[in-house]
Design a protein around this nucleic acid. Structure first.
Length: 917
RNA sequence: GCUCGGAUGGUGGAAUGGUAGACACGCAAGACUUAAAAUCUUGUGACCAUAGCGGUUGUGCGGGUUCAAGUCCCGCUCCGAGUACCA
């Protein structure tokens, strides 16, 4: 019987489906394990061979944990809302729900062929009303919550209303958009509308006038993580800054906890670092300044030590102070400057690094020296960070330096020995000079000393600042979750929870209305029963993906996002596998969302993803043919330098081991019908290069093709064998034969001459040793998600078993269990061939026995002065003296000793003997 | 600019401070075959030597620690990723 993978894989996939092998329920008698993949956006192009990399890894891990006796939750679903479906809808009029449904069906078909152990009964789709009901529900809860900085916790807004009516803002430390201060009497005297407007300043989901990333081409606003270098991530269109009233989530309130939480999770250092940078904690001080016109304002600095080097102040053009401070004489010039910078897009502002600014006419008084400092306005100061105003220390900040140079402002050096004639001295090192009471201190001492002085004199206070911004949560799009919000007297109110889900309405077109409103403005009857208008924006892509891992725990519950029972059983994700592209988006929002749900008592774990592994990207490996210029002749790779040639991308599916299938190439396109070839050794060899996997490079490899040629088990093993999971690497179909050959060898251990050739006698110690070495290696490799080395270990084991013609039943049966996580189909087939009635998925992961791994003798590497020269075997119980004598007496040793005596002999038991000469 | 990774044969990649290059691809030779494919066996870092034994050198570059360094420390070069007027 031959290894007929096609037939085997089809049969067992059916078997698993029929028997619902992968269905899990909460089972208190077993320990739980939750393995999650980042769910895909089902794009129209289907899966290429790079997509399943992480899914295969997580599947191996899940199957392994299941064999170890864990109750494993391993679900899959679809992040179904997204821009491509909407843009396709705009072009074709095809409803995004229809195309999304088709794409999902195609994804499912492709995924099924790979033999994953997902519990599909738990599938979620973010665009399903039964799912987004809970996205809307969480939003309502955020709307009705505020964040208490003292308790570091979200609390019901009703409690805040109570506090305001009793004590006003006194004694409260609240996360807010704008700091406010009022008394209980003032609060109680306000109208309903005024109170609502104030509460909006504190809600966790709030409507705010903020500078947003506006993308005119996409007709929507974007979150910071959806923009890179002033261009939209999707589509690459320019993005400009615009002030708009938008829904926001107060993610910034959670910045300290998002930072601290990183200590508790097992993520890679680089990913943690990326998140830390994104959160951007900086310690410093807020210092109060007063103008000669008696207007006070605050600045933020991390370099309080440089306070005596301040020679001017700078405000962001958007700062509200600009209006107050500007003197009548300067008003015209300032207005001109602000108009000019306001027109620039974000991209232009980044690209244009030239120094610009304008003098406001006002002067600030130095809090220590009383000196008068000119106040300037420049767009190198950002309105959104700190207070939107800075004290400029040109000697020790390169941006201030450039500004001072350009406008000829004084530069006062503060560090002994530094040279600021050409550039600023930004490093935080050296000894202070020109700094009054700070003189003689090092910079590291001076920073706290300066802050203390500021605090003692009541000139300011210590402050920790975060770069993390609130998330802008409105999108002017159709294909997203509708907000459960209606408007009464221009104020937003939430729908009652029992009216959820608020379903996405039908529209005639997926474009904005003539009046510039979002597509939902086209919907008929888009209002509440009472006739109040509903919100026209929809939620962004990250809304639906922020809590999906919770929904898998209890996917059909229509009473709660997740029941207390299900959540306290599954708790959080033990292993999460996905790409790094979500490092600052999804993984920040999700952690925020989870922490909010934790605060309101819905979930029992503060961090959603305990261990996280980022799989690398699979790049494409393109092939080229070389056309001789001005002809239809193609020259093979190694001969191409003899001609003047143009490289042309050729479909990698027509190339095997870099050898071109000439017939297929001729049929590829009419222009190549008559192509001629200059061959080497009868073959046409193609060139190659690593590029992004894309249709235009003709380097897309489809998993379906690999499966039909080699089988899913080979695909799974090969993707793992390609290299470490975390590393990016090109897909190279060359080399897949080796893995396929390995599976044939496994098959041939069982079958010989068409019949099962398994033997029943006692296994030899030698075979046991080989098997147990494998079990031990696999158990630790899998735990560390090191699957490339696992596959190698299999190959070594099977080669050795083949060499010793081991056909022992007990050995082979444990081998099959080991293989089951990696190559489940062939494992299931062989498991049944051995006479088992149940699925190999229900088997038990074998334990290794150290007894079998004990060695009688060990090879010692004998080195002289650290350089290895030869090897001697010693018995395990040989003493140091015996070893030393034997080594020095060995004939080979004489060559290195040259008659001299050894100074020292170092013996590492079982490993090495180093003779120092 | 800053932060974090990385650099090992023709290729992908292995190596708790202890025989560098496991495993696999590719290549070469051989066996089987009318032949090819498939399969199996052997060899395969480079250089030198060769009937045979063998020797030198070698993990991006330069130093250091150590009996012993791909691995640890210091200083560079190059590549990749993230981030960027964040005061």
């Amino acid at each position: 019987m031959d290894y007929n993978f096609g037939e085997i894989e089809k049969r067992w996939q059916q078997y698993w489906a029929d028997r619902q092998t992968y269905r899990v329920t909460e089972d208190a008698t077993k320990p739980k394990y939750y393995v999650l993949d980042m769910f895909p956006y089902p794009s129209g192009a289907g899966l290429h061979v790079g997509h399943p990399l992480g899914y295969i890894a997580s599947d191996i891990f899940s199957r392994f944990k299941r064999l170890q006796g864990y109750n494993v939750l391993h679900p899959m679903g679809y992040d179904a809302y997204g821009l491509p479906a909407e843009q396709y809808a705009i072009q074709t009029g095809q409803h995004p729900a229809v195309t999304t449904g088709q794409n999902i069906a195609r994804y499912r078909k492709q995924l099924d062929k790979i033999g994953f152990s997902y519990d599909w009964s738990r599938e979620v789709r973010t665009c399903d009303p039964a799912y987004y009901k809970w996205t809307q529900w969480a939003f309502i809860r955020m709307f009705h919550s505020y964040y208490c900085n003292q308790a570091q916790q979200a609390r019901p807004i009703a409690e805040l209303v109570e506090l305001f009516s009793q004590q006003g803002t006194a004694g409260l430390d609240l996360a807010c958009s704008v700091p406010m201060s009022f008394s209980a009497a003032e609060w109680n005297g306000m109208s309903e509308k005024e109170q609502q407007e104030i509460l909006m300043n504190y809600r966790i989901a709030y409507l705010g006038d903020t500078m947003v990333n506006w993308c005119p081409q996409l007709g929507t606003v974007l979150a910071n993580d959806e923009v890179s270098e002033g261009l939209s991530i999707r589509g690459g269109y320019p993005v400009e800054q615009k002030k708009m009233r938008q829904w926001c989530l107060r993610v910034s309130a959670y910045a300290p906890r998002l930072l601290e939480g990183l200590e508790k999770v097992e993520w890679s250092d680089s990913l943690k670092e990326t998140q830390r940078n994104w959160i951007g904690r900086s310690e410093g001080a807020v210092i109060h300044f007063r103008t000669t016109g008696d207007i006070t304002f605050d600045i933020f600095t991390t370099r309080a030590d440089t306070i005596f080097g301040v020679t001017f102040m700078v405000l962001a053009p958007e700062s509200e102070l600009v209006e107050q401070l500007t003197t009548p004489e300067q008003r015209h010039a300032v207005k001109q400057y602000i108009d000019q910078t306001g027109k620039k897009t974000e991209r232009e502002r980044i690209a244009d690094r030239s120094v610009s600014g304008v003098f406001s006419g006002a002067y600030a008084i130095h809090p220590f020296t009383g000196e008068h400092l000119p106040i300037w306005i420049s767009d190198y100061v950002l309105a959104g960070y700190g207070t939107g105003a800075i004290m400029a220390v040109p000697a020790h900040d390169s941006r201030d330096y450039a500004f001072a140079r350009h406008f000829n402002l004084p530069i006062v050096p503060l560090i002994a020995g530094c040279d600021v004639s050409e550039e600023s001295f930004d490093a935080k090192e050296g000894v202070m000079i020109n700094s009054c009471f700070l003189n003689g201190l090092t910079v590291k001492e001076a920073i706290p000393a300066a802050i203390n002085a500021v605090e003692q004199r009541g000139l300011g206070y210590r402050r920790i600042n975060y770069r993390l911004r609130d998330a802008i949560f409105s999108r002017q799009r159709y294909w997203g979750e509708p907000f459960p919000i209606y408007y009464k007297d221009g104020m937003p109110y939430t729908l009652p929870e029992e009216e959820l889900p608020l379903e996405l309405p039908e529209v005639d077109k997926f474009l904005p209305t003539e009046t510039g409103e979002p597509p939902l403005g086209r919907a008929k009857n888009w209002h509440t029963k009472e006739g109040y208008p509903l919100e026209l924006n929809t939620m962004p892509g990250f809304a639906g993906s922020s809590a999906y891992y919770l929904r898998y725990m209890d996917p059909h519950n229509d009473e709660a996002l997740v029941s207390k029972e299900a959540n306290s059983y599954w708790r959080n994700v033990d292993l999460y596998i996905g790409g790094t592209e979500h490092a600052t988006g999804h993984l920040v929002y999700s952690r925020f969302w989870n922490k909010f749900l934790f605060d309101i008592g819905v979930v029992c774990e503060d961090e959603p993803f305990q261990k996280l592994v980022n799989q690398g990207m699979i790049q494409g490996r393109s092939n080229f043919v070389y056309r001789i210029k001005g002809s239809n002749r193609f020259v093979s790779f190694n001969l191409k330098d003899q001609y003047e040639v143009t490289p042309i991308h050729v479909d990698v599916n027509m190339v095997h081991n870099d050898i071109l299938d000439i017939e297929a190439f001729r049929n590829w396109s009419p222009e190549y019908q008559t192509a001629e070839f200059i061959l080497e050794e009868g073959k046409y060899i193609c060139g190659w290069a690593v590029e992004k996997m894309s249709k235009s490079m003709f380097n897309v490899v489809n998993p379906d093709d690999i499966i039909s040629r080699y089988g899913a088990d080979t695909l799974r093993l090969y993707e793992m064998f390609l290299g470490p999971l975390e590393q990016s690497k090109p897909w190279d179909t060359n080399g897949i034969d080796g893995v396929h050959r390995f599976l044939r060898k496994v098959w041939n251990l069982f079958y010989q001459n068409e019949t099962l050739a398994v033997e029943d006698e006692e296994p030899s110690l030698k075979a046991l040793k080989v098997l147990h070495r494998l079990i031990k290696k696999l158990t630790s490799d899998i735990e560390q998600v090191s699957f490339n080395t696992s596959v190698s270990a299999f190959m070594i084991c099977v080669n050795e078993l083949t060499a010793m013609r081991c056909r022992n039943r007990s050995i082979l049966s444990e081998l099959v269990v080991c293989l089951a996580p990696f190559a489940p189909h062939i494992a299931e087939e062989l498991w049944h061939a051995l006479g088992n009635e149940t699925s190999v998925c229900d088997a038990t992961w074998p334990a290794w026995n150290e007894e079998y791994l004990k060695e009688d003798t060990f090879p010692y590497a004998i080195s002289f002065n650290g350089k290895s020269r030869f090897v001697i075997e010693f018995a395990a119980d040989a003493t140091r003296e015996e070893i030393e004598q034997a080594v020095l007496a060995h004939p080979n040793a004489q060559k290195w000793l040259k008659g001299k005596k050894a100074k020292k002999v170092i013996i590492v038991p079982g490993k090495i003997v180093n003779v120092v000469l």
